[in-house]
Nucleic acid binder design. Structure first.
Lengths: 201, 201
DNA sequence: CTTTTGACCATTATTTAAAAATAGTCAAAC
DNA sequence: GTTTGACTATTTTTAAATAATGGTCAAAAG
């Protein structure tokens, strides 16, 4: 079955990408891993980007499921965001090199920018949902959900990038992950407090 | 006078650094600009770093004066922070290349890291003062000023780095400066609201 | 004693050309 | 519908040669 082969390829690529990164993984290597010729791989995926894109979407879908579950289980807005940060951490650890690479790719090529924007958009949509629920639950004040969730996501990403006070250097240091998450949680708490309906201090 | 020559050198270096950047400016060029031999320049500054450091401190001091003035004129915390962002924007525009370069320098060398940390520290100290005043004025709740101002500065810097939703790429795009400041102001508003004493929504 | 300089060196950047690797194609076979 | 070996065009790596730059120093000038 066509789909099965595609998934096999995706799995092999995912393994290499998340370990060695996108650039350091060649299409031949991926093909060899599952005993295919490179030409055959290109029968299933138009080009390298298409393969990467498929993987990116798969990861996004996968983590969306986990987050949707959290949304059902946790009513409180802040707790949900905190949970979300933990989930994101899991994924970052699991697919480290891949995710890092995805973020700092040939950002002068249309398709890469489009993918990057899509990923940001998906994250924004999730946050929007959480915010909207918070408003409905009368936990948060009314505000422009779109621009605020955009700000929130940018904030969290920026915080990740600017881990210690020295180098920004796009790639998140693996060892500093815990520290980053901690800061993000602290920021989330203040942020939510800043858009919460006041109930006395 | 020794100090006069030093200032002359600093002025010349500042001109070149803020225009062409640190790396693309050679010590010979700076010397030539003010009709000195390179060897003579080294009589006044131990090495290139010492010169850069002197400039960095000068800029920090200069902007500190402007900010201190804002602190005297504006009582409200958020307004003060907004003013601060405007001041920072001015400086960033004025010394663009220099400041950008300063942030992404050989960050594996001790002295650079130290300078970078110092700059962060200075920014943190200013924010701390603003926060402390806000607490004293009974405008803000009581909180750990140190860790919170650290978070605030990191937040703002990260936001600057993560301008549009695509490339993080350490250097702030000059054209996007207005957009960035806008976002920073929005973030500052929510942040302050998040640590403000509630007065009813 | 302070300031200035030309000549000098070591190390780092830049350039260039050749070699190797890689993305992607295609006609033909299975 | 799948699979492949053989092929190209384009990037990446590599390595060597060259140029530029940071930094030193002994000696001269003021």
């Amino acid at each position: 079955m066509l789909d099965d082969k595609r998934n096999q390829i995706i799995a092999a690529a995912l393994r290499r990408f998340s370990h060695f990164g996108i650039v350091k993984t060649s299409m031949s290597e991926i093909a060899e891993d599952i005993k295919l010729s490179k030409a055959n791989l290109y029968y299933y995926f138009q080009d390298k980007f298409a393969l990467i894109e498929a993987i990116a979407y798969q990861i996004m879908d996968e983590s969306d499921v986990a987050i949707k579950q959290a949304l059902d289980e946790i009513p409180n807005t802040l707790d949900t965001l905190v949970r979300m940060l933990d989930i994101k951490k899991e994924y970052l650890e699991k697919y480290y090199m891949l995710i890092i690479n995805l973020q700092e790719m040939n950002m002068n090529e249309e398709r890469w920018i489009a993918l990057s924007k899509k990923m940001f958009q998906r994250e924004m949509d999730t946050i929007s949902k959480i915010f909207e629920r918070g408003i409905k639950r009368n936990e948060l004040v009314t505000f422009d959900v779109s621009s605020t969730s955009e700000l929130y996501v940018a904030l969290m990403r920026g915080l990740a990038m600017f881990c210690d006070h020295t180098i920004p250097h796009a790639l998140v240091d693996r060892d500093e992950l815990d520290k980053i998450i901690e800061k993000q949680k602290q920021a989330a708490a203040i942020f939510i407090n800043g858009i919460k309906k006041s109930t006395n201090s």
